[in-house]
Nucleic acid binder design. Structure first.
Lengths: 220, 220
DNA sequence: ACCAGGGTGATTGTCGCCAAAAACGTTGGC
DNA sequence: GCCAACGTTTTTGGCGACAATCACCCTGGT
């Protein structure tokens, strides 16, 4: 059984998977404004999938907290308030703390090298004044930490939480002076993890997230 | 538009909501064995809803991590390994720690009274050797703590995580001697929260969860 | 000129049908 | 007597169509 437009050239994915990936991507890249109404028929011809797939994809993203549904009024991009963003960051704070602690306990020599490389690149990005590169490296390093920690449950929760506040995060990363203060915190985390000091790593990571929360709070 | 059997007497819920609630309940109460295959038609006549509703409900529970789907082989209750249960409890540990800390910062006099009452009832349940009553009070007290903390994001995450390991938790709560060691930990949490000592509350809660993890680990 | 009411178009939610795939039972061969 | 291959049955996945609801506009009355 094939979809109308036969999207098998895209890969082995079925319509639902394709649609949910494209939708998630669109939200994260900010192609759909928060509060904007999503018309199913529009997405159908945009993604070239059936309406069933679009519908299933929306359901999935509603479950992830990215969209919200109102009965007979369709789905809209969920707008997350500042207070909610803070709540989410508080959860991330303790979960990332867990990740950092476990990473410190499991870190290998190759892991340490990789982390050191990230630390150097982050420093270079700040020195050269490249906020976008810094932000991207930042995410990569956090991902590396999650990988080292080997805590897939926490990693998945963090990923889900992060997706809900990409807008706030992005806005924050562009604030002048922000990378400078963030860099030191990141380096502290990396050092503690490499040293295998789990409590210090957790503390450093939580301090970092506290700093992010404070910055977001003040930005209003 | 009404469902075939018209289940409006149940309440204003639509078929999907009804089905997902009943399904969740069935999983938590252990009415469906882990790994057991779920036949959609069976659930249709069991809940008196349409197949679309059953299907949507299953999707929802898959997103929550309670079920897993295999293509063309339907949905089965997800079996969570011991290692996964430990991961989940580690996440709960830090999240409940956050809850405890925030509760300590926000606790009011009425809240304190309520917590004190729970502490007394828990002590009584242990003294009288009523493990079921203890377990039930335990959950109620944790819920009260979540309410006091006012961190709905963390509360929701904890609820979702908990649902995935109800089986392990239940098995654990029946172990002889378990309530005795658990009680002291709970009382420590309550005391710290009432005292408004956030760091102590977080520490006490994390110690408690560490104890749960250790107990589960040893039980195999 | 403005508000109320009704009607029309657009959009979502639900249901039934059909095809694909897997589980099952049966039969034939070795 | 046992295993394999085939056909049947059961179950899932997907698609189209219909019904219900909402948003918008248009008209008529005050």
């Amino acid at each position: 059984m094939r979809s109308v437009a036969d999207n098998s050239e895209v890969g082995g994915k079925d319509g639902k998977t394709l649609a949910s990936e494209r939708l998630r991507e669109a939200v994260i890249r900010g192609e759909v404004a928060p509060g904007q109404r999503l018309v199913e028929a529009e997405l159908v011809e945009r993604f070239r999938v059936t309406r069933s797939s679009v519908r299933a994809a929306i359901d999935e993203l509603v479950a992830e907290g990215l969209f919200e549904r109102v009965h007979h009024r369709g789905a809209r991009v969920r707008t997350v308030s500042l207070a909610q963003a803070v709540e989410i960051l508080e959860c991330r704070k303790v979960l990332e703390g867990l990740i950092a602690a476990k990473a410190a306990r499991r870190v290998s020599v190759t892991d340490a090298k990789r982390l050191r490389a990230y630390a150097d690149e982050l420093t270079a990005a700040v020195r050269d004044g490249e906020p976008l590169r810094y932000s991207s490296l930042n995410h990569e390093m956090h991902a590396a930490l999650r990988e080292i920690a080997g805590q897939s449950t926490a990693a998945e929760l963090i990923g889900r939480l992060n997706a809900q506040i990409v807008r706030h995060q992005f806005q924050l990363s562009l604030r002048p002076g922000r990378p400078q203060v963030s860099l030191g915190e990141h380096l502290a985390v990396v050092e503690a993890v490499i040293a295998g000091d789990a409590p210090a790593a957790e503390r450093a990571m939580r301090d970092h997230l506290d700093s992010v929360i404070a910055a977001l709070d003040s930005s209003g």
